[in-house]
């Protein structure tokens, strides 16, 4: 699960410029810790979503690989396919994963220097 979340965070956050990366900030661990604070029914649904996201590339973008094994370009195409899908369930999945990744990364003050936050 951690490996999947790391791959998702890498592509959604895309901080491979001069900023610290999601791996530097242990975003995947942060998401897993946060999930333990969620109500049980929400946590179960998010867990199922993460596994579903990992294994649906063959169906969604016709690539016979798990998400975490795709190349960056296909990963981005796959994420966008979820976010813009005609299926509400996939758009929900995109929203949840995006929120988890971005909020976990940007609430860490170590990410702020690269975006100029709290600088005069």
């Amino acid at each position: 699960m951690k490996e999947i979340l790391q791959s998702i965070a890498d592509r959604i956050i895309s901080a491979d410029d001069r900023g610290v990366t999601p791996r530097d900030l242990n975003v995947a661990d942060g998401i897993l810790s946060y999930m333990h604070l969620m109500p049980a029914h929400t946590r179960r649904a998010v867990t199922q979503l993460i596994w579903l996201f990992e294994y649906l590339p063959p169906v969604i973008i016709l690539k016979p690989r798990r998400f975490s094994r795709l190349g960056p370009r296909d990963q981005d195409r796959y994420i966008e396919a979820w976010g813009t899908s005609r299926l509400g369930l996939l758009r929900t999945g995109f929203r949840v994963l995006k929120t988890l990744a971005l909020s976990t990364y940007y609430q860490n003050s170590a990410s702020w220097k690269a975006i100029g936050h709290m600088e005069e």
Binding site: I13, I79, I115
Partner: peptide, 14 residues
Amino acid sequence: SPGVFASGMGGFGR
């Protein structure tokens, strides 16, 4: 706050 702001902003990735 930055985390709420970032998760609400449009787009993803680059």
